[in-house]
């Protein structure tokens, strides 16, 4: 499954991809953003950082048994400081379709487009 996010900044594009990640599992509007989890990743390469960001979210989803519907990303030097708001999985209300196994390096791209907009994309394994 391929995920793609666009934004005015790289941080916004990363937030949009994270929304797409949740959308592969359930309908986004069904997920309440009542609990906040913080995430930190570090690295030079912005593409590897995208994979790290998504895999950190996959880890939090799996171990906290949560789904997230709102994201905030900031870049400070080489670090990504992220926040994800969501709630515990409710199988009746969310009817989660698939479990994301991990983000891959396939079709991985983080780039500023000619129109100035940022694109962030990769394929995830479900």
């Amino acid at each position: 499954m391929g995920l793609r996010g666009y934004g005015a900044t790289q941080a916004q594009a990363f937030e949009q991809v994270a929304l797409a990640l949740t959308a592969t599992v359930t309908d986004l509007h069904r997920v309440r953003s009542s609990q906040c989890v913080t995430i930190e990743c570090e690295g030079e390469d912005r593409e590897l950082l995208l994979v790290d960001w998504l895999n950190a979210l996959v880890f939090e989803m799996a171990t906290r048994r949560m789904l997230f519907s709102r994201f905030e990303v900031r870049f400070v030097d080489r670090r990504l400081l992220g926040k994800a708001w969501g709630e515990a999985i409710n199988r009746e209300r969310h009817s989660p379709a698939v479990e994301v196994k991990g983000a891959t390096y396939t079709a991985l791209k983080v780039a500023q487009l000619a129109n100035g907009e940022w694109l962030a994309q990769c394929v995830i394994d479900v």
Partner: peptide
């Protein structure tokens, strides 16, 4: 399950680097 997925995720990155 999750264990295999996480091993795959981590070693893929180590191998890329």
């Amino acid at each position: 399950r999750g264990l295999g997925h996480q091993i795959g995720t981590e070693f893929l990155k180590y191998m890329v680097l």
